[in-house]
Computed example of a mutant assay.
Amino acid sequence: MGIVLGANQYGKAETRLVRVTRDGGTHTLTDLNVSVSLAGDLVDAHLSGDNGHVLPTDTQKNTVYAFARRHGVTSVEAFGLLLARHFVASQEPIHAVRVRLESYSWTRLGPHSFQRDGAEVRTATVTCDRSGATVVSGVTDLVLLNSTGSEFVGYRQDGYTTLAPATDRILATAVTARWRHASADGDWDASYAAVRSALVSGFVETYSRSLQQTLYAMGERVLTERPDVVEVRMSMPNRHHFAVDLTPFGLDNPNEVFYAADRPYGLIEGTVLRDDAPAAGLAWW
């Protein structure tokens, strides 16, 4: 029985990039975290230590900074495409590239003053080989809460079930969503804003009988409103809120005072896609 090298890649992870665009006295701030992975003809590097096909990860980091200066950063998707296409086109041993980006939002306080926004982070993953590119946009830590309009009843029970049915509960989650575009061309900022709005609307406007139902409704809303999106993947923790028993203090609690538990939590994950959606084409989506 032989031993062989399996799938592999390497790259520079989490290059922190802050780009200040100076337009007279008014500045624009872009704050990114960029991770690059390269795959290709790298067998010799693993088996014999021959680095002839290895582009140093330090070079990858430098390319991120140089491209930020030379090309600017209009959107995470566009910047990721520039980087991915560059590495595939310029490095013959490299057959496929993945660029993952996180964008941190800042609110303008003045011409050159800013305040960092909350935990929500815009993301993008660009994968590219010599046959083309795939763009996946996304968001992490999109925290949403409905104080009513949610129930959880009729579930399967066994000898270990202690959960009481809930006909009126708080539904809260921190959405991680990623959506695949039909093509590698688009108005990325407008598309991101529209998809985010559709996700939020799907959450707000759905009477929820389960977080699974809400997840599907959110993905369905995106695909209904955005023909440029072919697939949505979501991970949604159920941030449980439990009504506090106030009877020891002679008080009632008509669903007004809650304990917000951070763990353990239910974790609901799923994919909503068009039944004729083309395959992603690259394994790194």
Results as ranks from 00 to 15, higher is better:
70 R>K: 03
118 G>S: 07
149 G>N: 15
33 N>R: 08
126 V>D: 00
264 P>T: 13
106 W>L: 08
8 N>E: 09
80 G>E: 04
39 A>D: 12
174 A>Y: 05
95 H>Q: 00
23 D>S: 05
153 V>N: 13
136 V>Y: 03
108 R>V: 01
195 V>H: 02
51 N>P: 08
28 T>M: 11
126 V>H: 05
16 R>T: 08
146 N>C: 12
29 L>V: 06
207 Y>T: 12
156 R>F: 11
283 A>Q: 12
229 V>W: 12
189 D>N: 10
114 F>N: 05
146 N>E: 13
142 L>H: 02
163 L>E: 11
257 V>Y: 11
152 F>W: 11
86 H>L: 12
60 Q>Y: 07
193 A>D: 14
140 T>L: 01
4 V>Q: 01
228 D>E: 15
185 D>A: 02
58 D>A: 08
80 G>D: 05
212 Q>N: 12
221 R>V: 15
62 N>Y: 06
23 D>V: 06
230 V>T: 15
221 R>H: 14
263 R>P: 10
274 R>A: 06
184 A>L: 03
75 S>D: 09
56 P>C: 08
68 A>D: 09
270 G>H: 06
127 T>N: 03
115 Q>F: 07
96 A>R: 00
130 R>D: 01
89 A>Y: 13
66 A>E: 13
248 P>R: 10
57 T>K: 02
126 V>G: 06
21 T>A: 05
149 G>L: 13
166 A>S: 09
193 A>T: 14
70 R>P: 01
172 A>C: 14
201 S>G: 07
97 V>S: 08
157 Q>I: 09
243 A>K: 10
217 A>G: 05
73 V>I: 13
244 V>Q: 02
184 A>W: 02
27 H>R: 02
9 Q>I: 01
12 K>S: 08
150 S>L: 14
79 F>N: 06
285 W>L: 10
263 R>V: 15
33 N>E: 04
92 E>V: 04
98 R>E: 11
99 V>K: 00
163 L>Y: 09
51 N>C: 11
107 T>Q: 00
67 F>W: 08
274 R>D: 06
135 V>Y: 05
50 D>I: 00
264 P>G: 07
72 G>A: 00
107 T>C: 06
217 A>L: 06
184 A>V: 03
199 L>F: 03
123 T>L: 11
270 G>F: 05
